[in-house]
């Protein structure tokens, strides 16, 4: 099995091979394939596989109960899988291995910190478990406290923290050992807008610094903002995968180009009919709405036609269809119920 996905941002093809063919191929920080997990009758994860390259942020977008947490639990080596294989930085991960776990920073969906310990004590505890050398741990804790904005509250017990502060510490613990792969399970659920924004910014920065990020969410906007590639997961299966662009095109969703026009749009509408990519044109007083396949490719042609027709353009707006509509198209239901 070979899965090829065009990655626009990095302008290269990511090729995912089955393990037998993947030997010597170290492009990806994470490679997983054929993951299955059933709880009694319920198949929570059904043949899930994907890969994440260095510096790439990968989103698992799906509603509650889709199987996101179950999937990343198997990837983090905390849940025994029924089938499948996980490789992180070239090392196999199961519940019995520990080698590869040093490459993973796992940030669980629930706040997994000791409430009766301070932030510093929580960080120290997990730092020891991550095997950070003693002389390195102290300075690293200070760094992380700085990053998550808790430097001045580091010696307070975490039970006294606000929800957002706890969330930030929850993430901070996953960053302690500077993992190659950071796994974030719905990190913004129940967080105030300000904390949420700071979390999203941190994730963006991490991606830029070269960390591979696996990000699960049921918020379409977060997946769109953060993720280079997104897998749409529902009922334990990945329904589609790719960049936002690819996903949108995959389901035949069109872009909308809104033109503000000066003077008569009549001639423009006539001329635009000759552009094959254009599916539909609606003209109104002072504006034209154009439904088109691949707005970015066609937009120069549209503007050219407008110029030839002598129509003045006062504004251009491109509205791309979002992942919400992709999800709706793929599963017949909304992301949030």
């Amino acid at each position: 099995m070979i899965i090829c996905v065009k990655d626009d941002r990095q302008a290269k093809w990511n090729v995912m091979l089955m393990p037998s063919e993947a030997k010597g191929c170290n492009l990806n920080v994470l490679e997983c394939s054929g993951l299955v997990k059933a709880f009694d009758e319920l198949v929570a994860v059904d043949d899930v596989g994907f890969h994440i390259a260095e510096g790439e942020t990968y989103g698992l977008l799906g509603p509650n109960g889709a199987g996101k947490t179950t999937t990343i639990s198997m990837i983090s080596g905390i849940l025994e899988s029924d089938a499948g294989r996980v490789m992180v930085a070239g090392k196999e991960i199961t519940t019995r291995t520990t080698d590869g776990n040093a490459e993973i920073g796992y940030v669980p969906q629930d706040i997994a910190i000791y409430p009766d310990l301070t932030a510093r004590e929580n960080l120290r505890f997990f730092g020891k478990l991550y095997g950070i050398p003693k002389d390195r741990l102290g300075p690293r804790i200070d760094e992380v406290l700085e990053v998550i904005g808790l430097s001045d509250r580091g010696d307070d017990r975490t039970e006294e923290y606000s929800g957002g502060m706890k969330r930030r510490l929850n993430i901070g613990i996953g960053l302690l050992h500077e993992p190659s792969l950071l796994i974030l399970d719905e990190p913004t659920v129940g967080v105030d807008p300000q904390s949420r924004n700071s979390i999203l910014e941190s994730v963006e920065l991490l991606g830029q610094s070269g960390t591979a990020v696996l990000y699960t969410t049921h918020y379409m906007e977060e997946a769109e903002r953060l993720c280079d590639r997104v897998a749409i997961i529902d009922g334990g299966k990945i329904r589609a995968e790719g960049t936002r662009r690819e996903l949108v095109e995959l389901v035949g969703q069109r872009d909308t180009v809104n033109l503000g026009v000066i003077g008569s749009a009549h001639r423009l509408v006539e001329d635009l009919r000759s552009v094959s990519e254009i599916q539909q044109i609606t003209a109104a007083e002072g504006s034209v709405e154009i439904l088109v396949d691949g707005a970015s490719r066609v937009l120069p042609r549209i503007l050219e036609v407008a110029q030839e027709a002598g129509v003045g353009i006062s504004g251009v707006e491109v509205v791309e269809p979002n992942l919400e509509s992709v999800f709706l198209h793929l599963t017949g239901k909304a992301l949030r119920d």
Binding site: S76, T98, P108, L129, Y130
Partner: peptide, 12 residues
């Protein structure tokens, strides 16, 4: 609290 699971996720 999920602290146990988190311990399992570390190289421990």
């Amino acid at each position: 609290l999920g602290v146990s699971r988190r311990m399992v996720s570390t190289p421990t």
